[in-house]
Design a protein around this nucleic acid. Sequence first.
DNA 1: GCCAGGATTGTGACCGGTCACATCAGGGAC
DNA 2: GTCCCTGATGTGACCGGTCACAATCCTGGC
Lengths: 345, 345
Amino acid sequence: MNVTGHTRRPASIRDVATAAGVSYQTVSRVINGHPSVKPTTRDRVLAAIDELGFRRNATALALASGRSRAVTVLTANTTHYGYASILQGIEEAARAASYAVGIGVLESADEAAVTAEVQRAADAGGGLVVIAYDPAGVRALSAVPSELPVVGVVETPASPPGGDRPWVWTDDREAAYQATRHLLSLGHETVHYVAIPSSTRRTSARTSGWQQALKEAGAPEPRPVQGSWGPAGGHAAGLELARNPAVTAILCGNDDLALGVLRALHEAGRSVPGDVSVAGFDDAPHSAYLTPSLTTVRLDFTGLGRAAFALLHGVVEEDAQIAPHPVSVPELVVRESSGPPPAGA
Amino acid sequence: MNVTGHTRRPASIRDVATAAGVSYQTVSRVINGHPSVKPTTRDRVLAAIDELGFRRNATALALASGRSRAVTVLTANTTHYGYASILQGIEEAARAASYAVGIGVLESADEAAVTAEVQRAADAGGGLVVIAYDPAGVRALSAVPSELPVVGVVETPASPPGGDRPWVWTDDREAAYQATRHLLSLGHETVHYVAIPSSTRRTSARTSGWQQALKEAGAPEPRPVQGSWGPAGGHAAGLELARNPAVTAILCGNDDLALGVLRALHEAGRSVPGDVSVAGFDDAPHSAYLTPSLTTVRLDFTGLGRAAFALLHGVVEEDAQIAPHPVSVPELVVRESSGPPPAGA
DNA sequence: GCCAGGATTGTGACCGGTCACATCAGGGAC
DNA sequence: GTCCCTGATGTGACCGGTCACAATCCTGGC
């Protein structure tokens, strides 16, 4: 160990080579596990590595070899439950594969801003995971130059916006379908829907799952109420729906929205689930502890993140490339916020 | 523009040099804004850069110059509101300074695991921001080799665990003090406290602010109840406190904990704020929409993250180094969950 | 005892930038 | 007209690894 106290620069393979009395190439072979190195030599090199505290310089490796063992996650948001959990899943898997994880936030959906951010991510080297749940993400995914390895986390599997890029998704359609069926099965005549902003102009997967369930049941299909991502949007939407006494069941695009809806119904003097049933989406950590606790559909975002990384890893390392597939089966979690419609309805 | 469709490797400064009919060094001068380049030459080079779509290779830059324009954030968590917001703030500021942002999650507080993660972060090059709100983070901060630029986001300013490293903090002590005073001023005899896990064995800043307020008011000081980070811990603590009819006011270490406490009180049949007042900490986005809405202390985590980056930036670029300072003045937000104690108490 | 061939090891060039220094021209002072 | 200095530009080495190829050692087969 070095005890001089000098802030010397870290040892390079040439330092190790000198210490072990071999050439730098032999050191390179040892750290790369090349087979044809005599065991005694290898031991000598390993001892030198250990003594000098040598660590392979990631920057030099990236420059010389092109491989960079890094992922950059491009996302419009890092704090919302779903996004944060996907990020966490990616980080987890990346760490296990000893990949570095970078993040880039798409603050605006503006074309120029998105392109700039994609460029920055490309500069970082390595692969990309783009969370394309919103317009900014979708735009980013399609702005990624074709020579870059990228995986999209998308909302809908059909004709993904990123073209022929590999992607992963959760089955949002199925999840919305299940939640809607649940509410209908309780006896509600129909189910209203408060939507999250869609990733594209087309109908979102969540919306279409809801529509399908209504159609199958022959229930009237009310116009979806547009919400935002957070509770504030849900609150506004909830106030609007509360004015209509015919509304007895509300499905929300996510749990935050549902929280706002619950609050709005409370303010309007309508009880949940007595007067109105509410269901959310995502099963955020706080949903089980609300009063009333929230019926919702659980999605495995962390697993989704892990799958996204696994897919990217497969692409980058040119191993068997895993076919894109939905990684989580959505699971309906029935809690207090849903129940039969009021007797009079 | 290139229209061959070939996946050619990106242009280097030598490609640009050839295209502009100058040496690579001149190109380097142009992209670095060196003064002594003849305007006509500069224009020629800029035109070539534009035509070839040249972008400076960040990896090569880092290797050759040592500077890397990157920050790695080391944190035990990415999903909790406070952590996620700090990360967001760092990313925001870093993006503005065109720094790359990396993250490393400290999954375990185990010494070896933490050291390994710090090593990985060091390998990424650039500076470090360590969120030291918990044992893992504190350990990581002190495990950072002294030659690495690092900023700690710590709980308590006094004798920071990272030694002489620069740091930023929120004034948690003041925040807890304010919240406790608020509850006492409503007429409660004393205030109970549900604690988040402390970053060290010592009394946390939040705990000591609470204690100080009680002491000043001559109120009895109950033993703090230990919680975890999430609502589940708050729920358990809440059930325990609900058994004691003398409890009329509860301060919680964060809003998630408070949510669990609210739920537990509801289950125990005690009304909020009629029987018991509850206050949280952090002002998470959902807190305003709970029923009852949550009285809490707002902390500017995003600003804290920005400040952490600014400080690091100052250290790395060797500009005027900003002295560490609390960036946010905690702000008490009074909502429905706090009120006077029941008349009989 | 001599040679083919695999196992081991070393050398030089390169990745794409930067840095330190050399070179070359032009212009003012004498 | 010469000298010196400064502005503009080019050359070579280097950052710390990798890659392709050359060189050397050792062993078995004949």
